[in-house]
Structure formats: C-alpha cells, structure tokens
Write a protein that binds this DNA or RNA. Structure first.
Lengths: 401, 401
DNA sequence: GTAATAAGTCAAGACAATTGACTTAATAAG
DNA sequence: CTTATTAAGTCAATTGTCTTGACTTATTAC
C-alpha cells in the first residue's frame, strides 16, 4: 500500500561523509592559507595530528597536495609545509553569452591554462550546440597537449549563462527566448563531452571566480554585484554560493524600480545592455569592449552621462544588498571594461549610509573584482572544482551525487 | 616565533559529529512528518535500518522520542511509528520590545506552555534587567509546577529584540539608542538564569517560529516578511536561518526608498510605528492592539488609507524578496492584529510579476503567518530548540559550542 | 495452509578518528 | 659543548559509529 504522501527528510551521513568533509577542509585550508604544515592544519581544523597526517598522506598519494622544503621556525623539529598541486585537478568552464561563447581550462588553484572563444551562429541551439561542443573539445585537447593526465583529472564542465532559468516569459530579452531556454543544453553537453555538467547564471559564476581567486577568497559572506550585459548578484553566504529554491537567487536584473510613475527593470538602467543602447552601439561588435574601455578612460562625456545615471542605481543596489544580506563586503565585478569599472566605482562613491557602516570593519564596503572579461568563464570552471573540493554541507550527506 | 597571521580554516569533524547529525536528522524528520517507523526513517534518511534502530533506541532512552501503537499497513510485520515527545525538551523565549516584554515556555514540538508579560519601566536597562529576570524566573517556576523535570530538560533562553545589532547610530529609534544597545544584556541574562542565551532580531525570531510550527514548517527556502513595530525579513535559506556576517541580515527597515526626490527608510512607510503615527496613537497603550484589530475589521477609512499606502511598499518589497532570494514562498508575519494582516494581504494582491511566477509552484507566493502576537516570543524560544535539535552544518563540526 | 512481503534484530566487520607513548630535529640555556 | 626544552610528526592500539548479511517476527495474498 502506498501512502502517497512522500516522506520529507534530510539525509544522514556516515564515516565516508566525515572523511570526505575532512579532506575538503584540508584542501580549503591550503587554498586559503597557501601553505601549511600538518601541525598547522591540525590546530586550524581541530583535528588531531594523526588524523591530519593520514589525510595529507592520502591527498599526496592522490596528487592533490605536495610537500615543500621544511622550514625551521624556532625550537622543535622543522615543519614541512604542504600546498595544493595546481595540476591536481582541472575543469572546463564555458560561458555562453548573447554574442560570444568562451571556454577556459582551469586548474585546482584557479589558474587559467587555456582560453578559446567563438561567435555563436544565429542558427539557434541546434547549430550553436555544435559550435560549443567543438570549442570545449578544442580547449580540452590543447590542454591535454601541455599537461599530462589532464583528462584523468578533469572533474567537470561548468556552464555559465544569463538567467533566470525555468521561468516562463523570461523578460524581454529576445536572446533568452524560446530556443535556448527550452533546448536541453546540459544533457547535450554531458552526452557530447562525457563530463559532469553544472549550470550557474553569470553572476553566480563571477562570484564563484571571486571566491576561488579573487576578492572573495576566504570570505564567508560576500555579495558580487555583477554588471555585464545584464545585471545580477552572486551570493556567497556562509562560505557557499547560494542558489535559492530554483537556482535563480540573485537575479536582480528583473527587479522593478519605480520612478517617475512607471516601473523599469534594474537591468534597463544599469547594465552594459543599457550602455550599448545609450551609445547606439551594436552589442555584437567584437571591438566594442576595447572601444568602450578607450572611451571610458578618456572620460567621454556620453559615457559619463550613462555612468552618472547607472551609479545612482548601483549605489542604491549596494545599499540594499548591504541591508538585506549584511555581508562582509560587496564586490563589483562583471565583464565590463576595466576603465569603465574604475569610473563606475568612482561615481558610485560615497556609498549610502547603511548597517555596513560599523566600527572595526576588516574589508572595504565596496571593492572591485577581477578585471578580466573572462571572469565568468573562469567562474564557470570554478564551479566543478568547488563542487568537488570545497567543504559544503551537502557533501557530507549520503545523498550527495 | 609567532607568524602573527592567523590561520583561517574550517573545522573538521569526527564520529561524534556524524552521530550528532544523524540524531538531528531523525528528530527533524519526525518533526516534519509527524510519525515515522524505523523503516520509514531508514528510507528517508538513506541510513540503514540498523543505524536508525540504534539511534531511535538512544533517543527513546533520552526521552526525546516515543513509540506509538503498531500499525498494520499491508503485508509484512506491522510498523511501530515513533514520534517526538513534546516534554522531551523545553526552552524559554523572551521578547523585548519597545513597550512590553514577553516570556514564554515552549516544548520540543513548539507548543506554548506558559506565557507572561510585563511592561518595561522607563528606568532603562539596569532596572529593566531586573524586571526581565523576574519574568523569566516566573515562567520557569510556573512551568516547573506543571511539568516534572522541566528544568533538567531546559535547553536555553532565546532572546528576540529589534535589531540591528552592533551598529553605531542605530537609525532614529530613540528606544534602541545608547542604553539597551550597550548594556551587556545577554551576559546579565546568562548569569542571572544559568541558561545558554541566544539572540535574534524580531524578524528572525518570527521566521524561526514559522519554521517550527507555522507556514515555513519543513520548507527549506522561505522569507518571512515581518511587520511589527519595525519591519524586517527573517531568512530561511537552505533550511537554516541566515544571520549574515554580523547577525543583521534581513534588517530591511533601514532600507532607503527614493520617491518624490527624497529618501525614506522602509520602516517609516510600512510598519506599525508608521500606523501609530498615522493614527496619532500612543504605542504604549495596552489596548491599542485590540483597538486596531477592531478598526481594521470594521474597515475604518483612516486605517484603510494607511493600508493602501503600506501595501504599495510591501508589494514591492515582496517582489524584491522574490527576485533576490528566489524562495519557495514568502510569509507575511508579525505582531500586527489579525484583521489588519488580513486586510493588508488583500490590499497587497495582486503581486507584481517576478521570477516567482513559475509553472508547478507547490506553495503560494504569499501566505499569512501565525496570527499570534506572541509569535516573536515563541520564535525566540524556538531558537535554542533549533540550535539543540535541528540538523545544521555547524553542528557536525568539532568547533560547535 | 503456504508463499510473499515488510519490519526489525543480532553479531560480526569495516572505517576513520583518537589516544598516548615514542622518535626526530631543531633552538636555548648553562 | 652538553643538556634541556620545544615542536613536528609517527606508531600501534583503541574507540566510536555505521554497515553488512543472515535471521526472526508478524502480517497479508493467494
């Protein structure tokens, strides 16, 4: 007899969950602190020397960790620091944007080893998928050419594309319409590459990148305000990326602002899309990025107008983010040209008063993120790395995977 | 030699962490599903029958769980359902508000066993602390009068008061100024009661209550929009209350809204404080709650004006919450009179379009929370219960406590 | 009346962290 | 130069907790 009312419960855990967690904690500690001895690790993680020794030995056997030269630092036996082995793991990151697709290969410490870029043909997903698969294959084979065993240490393929996902009428962005949203892209990629495939929206990917190699490195509570073609927020809460109930948390582009008696999505007021429109520029122009960087650094008045307007909305967005999330810091990141970001940050300041104005702050309220147009692709790649190696609640549970 | 740069790392875990987690998972499963057999628990938690049996036996010995009558439900041996023992644990909840202090005693399943209320004398913290301690002592001794062993099973004292905490100029609310913010209340309470003391802001407490016994019961992603004297949001993310870097996450009362060329904190536009001001009512009036309930239920035009105005801001707040957090549901709760909440919800609808409008929703986008003016006190008490018995990442770690 | 099914127990085993004594290698003090 | 002290790290035995597979019990289906 079927009671039909399903039982809801969280998963339990066992020895393997414990062990997996402790391994992840070691890797995390080495990632954040650079190099640590076994004794350091034992102190920092509250585990015993012996346990740490066993785990480190195992990680070393697995090629994830490697010892450095012993260091004398006072009385007692010199300690042997251990550090992550960059080539201990690799992941491919894929950024699918409106007008371009980028693939990168990244290693365990987040270094980019290979980049490739392609335009997306207008034919839609069916032809687009082919281009994407070729791009991934290209990056993988080139990586295999310079690194032994890269394929054996490949932990997955991370995809980043503009969200929100799974929503009926996805705003007014014609790019997202129909085709790409309905196309079973992840399944196609998984089948075509044989890799585990994960998906993030572009803001989340940017945040993941900042956490692995950028300003959010080792920060447990940070919000990345992402200004790209669209606008979004990547949420790092309790040291983990927060995705929401449906993976759309932080998709603030569609947040409605009310002014002058009418409502406008934030995205229309502060995003590269709005800048392109303001400049009557063609978003598909491959030289646009450089041109805007140039204009911005020269203080072009037309751009200035947009910056002033966008800064008002961004300043307020930051205020709201601080108020709602109470983060340690807000990171302004995105695929915007560096000079533009610089000017934007200058224009945003001074920030509005908020609860973030507290004595004893360790981090600035607002700081710039990675100035790399590839940061979303890097974050996409950081996704699988993080999933495989970072400490997270889900990873101790028996139902993980 | 001291390297002085402290090592940052997450804590590891061990067998006891595993065991603690599994115990919590059992309790959580029983809380959410009511009664479950050992076999049910094994299936739901991914643990083996044997493990579940051992843990249940232990929980039964500890008086947290109790077997019911066996149920025949088809072929096979009848199953013996287990359920939580309400008197397995108790906690005291304390709500410290501007004009009143409330204490409640709550049991393991969140039932309120005792309530007590007192006005706060104007003398400030030093005299106030005495009143509060007496109130807590009163509730405890009365509880001890009706329940054997209640003191032995007391897990803590939860305090809820308006935030934000630890911020310099804490808005313009004279109540929060100076005295109470600086007074070491928690230490005094811990010393005076001998209990573990925890602190939440009132919105967080309301959310904790909703999670234990209300609309957020068993929901992993929910935001409680709290409309009380102030306004706030209690964030339930990944099944846990999110507190932010400094415990102030969700304190949206100070969020600035821009309209008509000037900025106003949300709190000034939608909160009972703003209603009191609109009505020129004295917040300290003990009959105010009932009077407003009466006025609201009769459709008083003066109140209607306020409702219409507040609804605009709340509608937009909900839109923003949905956009930012992507929750399964938003719960409107607070210490507002029931009739007012009813009218408010009616006035708020229809909601603004957002990513929450998705096919296959299981829960309403907006729903009313507990209609109990004591809900904040209940949530305060639910805090220690949750800390002691709910599954949470921190609880598996060696540095917990 | 017998087979099938499901709940639950028993006892042995596996896994991973802990414990306490021990080894090694350096500096500090006399 | 010798010895004490300190700290890193190892060894071997132990402990705590979950798992495994066989077994028992109680019920319904045929």
């Amino acid at each position: 007899m079927n009671d039909s009312r399903p039982i809801r419960a969280k998963s339990g855990t066992n020895h393997e969950g414990t062990s997996a967690h402790n391994r992840r904690v070691m890797i995390d500690a080495l990632r954040i602190n650079g190099e640590l001895s076994r004794a350091d690790l034992a102190r920092a993680t509250w585990l015993t020397k012996q346990t740490v020794s066993n785990i480190i030995e195992e990680l070393e056997r697995d090629g994830l960790v490697r010892s450095q030269e012993p260091v004398r630092k006072g009385r007692g036996q010199p300690s042997t620091p251990y550090g992550l082995v960059p080539e201990g793991a690799f992941a491919i990151g894929l950024q699918i944007d409106r007008h371009v697709t980028r693939a990168v290969a990244v290693d365990l410490i987040g270094s980019v080893l290979m980049r490739a870029e392609a335009g997306l043909p207008p034919g839609g997903p069916s032809t687009g998928a082919k281009v994407i698969l070729d791009l991934v294959a290209d990056v993988r084979s080139k990586l295999a050419g310079i690194v032994q065993q890269s394929e054996k240490r490949m932990v997955g393929l991370g995809v980043a594309m503009p969200g929100p996902f799974g929503v009926a009428g996805s705003g007014d962005d014609p790019w997202m319409m129909e085709a790409w949203q309905k196309f079973p892209l992840l399944e196609r990629l998984a089948a075509g590459t044989g890799l585990d495939v994960g998906l993030q929206n572009d803001a989340a990917a940017a945040a993941t990148a900042e956490r692995m190699v950028g300003a959010a490195h080792g920060v447990d509570h940070a919000v990345c305000l992402f200004v790209g073609y669209g606008i979004g927020a990547g949420l790092i809460l309790n040291g983990e990326l927060y995705r929401g109930a449906n993976g759309n948390a932080g998709e603030i582009g569609m947040a409605l602002l009310f002014a002058d008696g009418k409502s406008t999505p934030l995205e229309h007021r502060a995003s590269l899309a709005s800048l392109y429109q303001h400049l009557s520029a063609d978003p598909a122009d491959p030289h646009l990025h450089a041109r805007i960087n140039d204009l911005a650094s020269r203080g072009d008045p037309n751009i200035k107008t947009w910056i002033e307007a966008a800064a008002v909305d961004l300043r307020w967005s930051i205020h709201l983010i601080e108020t709602v999330f109470d983060p340690q810091t807000v990171i302004l990141c995105g695929s915007a040209p560096e000079a533009l970001v610089k000017r934007l940050i200058a224009a945003i300041g001074p920030l509005l008063p908020s609860i973030a104005e507290r004595p004893g702050r360790m981090l600035p309220r607002l700081q710039p993120g990675m100035a790399d147009p590839w940061s979303v692709a890097i974050g996409a790649a950081a996704g699988p790395i993080s999933r495989a190696f970072d400490p997270r609640f889900a990873a101790i549970l028996k139902d993980f995977l």
